[in-house]
Simulated assay, not measured.
Amino acid sequence: MAATAVSICSNALLMLGSQTINSFDDSVNLNRAQLCSNLYPTVRDDLLRAHPWNCCVKRIQLAPDSDAPVFEWTYAFQLPSDCLRVLEVVSRDCNIEYKLEGRSVLCDEASIGLRYIFKNTDENTWDSSLVGLATIAMAAALAYSITQSTSERDSREAALERALRRAKAVDGQEEPPETLGDERLLAARMGGGW
């Protein structure tokens, strides 16, 4: 079955012993549907921002805005509308100095590459561990409203923290380790030459 925002919320409600919803406009379970509809976008975006999930990373090339910053930096670049978190700003394949102000990247380069976490609203493209994590996060967000129990809420929040650590570790292990610094310099110091 394809993952959707509604299926994630329904499974979270099931975890709390509540009735599921068929849509965010479900007239039978209107209160639960509205609660899920209100909470889900914030929970999703916070979860996506929390880690550079492989299924939620994009790369694009940006051109500078026509209006330059008033002082200090030479160029300003508008962040994409779907950008939740900047991961890397590069020019000519090298990381550069930059500053984020509002929805702009300020720097001294005329063209930049941006690697960022985007607002991936197609849950069907998510990794299965991220779908499971989103379900646990929704259960934690809904716990008090559905059960009126602070101990249930606290238990769900603790479960979320454990699941988040595990999902981050699994996702992070799918990529090769990052290297730091100039490998040519390291090779020269170790006698490998250039």
Rank of each mutant, 00 (worst) to 15 (best):
D65K: 13
I136G: 02
L164H: 13
P176Y: 04
N11E: 12
S145R: 13
A110F: 01
T4M: 10
H51Y: 15
D182C: 11
M15W: 01
S129C: 06
D26K: 05
S27C: 01
T179Q: 07
R165C: 02
S91G: 09
D154S: 15
L39E: 14
L84Y: 04
L133V: 06
L180R: 07
D82F: 03
A187P: 00
E152C: 04
L14H: 12
F118G: 05
Q173C: 09
V105C: 14
L87D: 11
S18T: 02
S104V: 03
I21F: 02
V6K: 01
D65W: 01
T74R: 15
Y98P: 03
Q148F: 08
N120M: 02
L16G: 03
L106K: 11
V170M: 08
T150L: 11
N95R: 13
R49F: 00
P177I: 07
N31Q: 14
K58M: 11
D93G: 01
M190K: 08
A33M: 04
L186C: 03
V57Q: 13
Q61D: 09
R59Y: 12
V86T: 15
E109Y: 15
W73T: 07
E123T: 10
L39G: 01
S145E: 12
V70M: 10
L87E: 14
L39Y: 04
I96Q: 06
S27I: 12
S104T: 08
A143P: 12
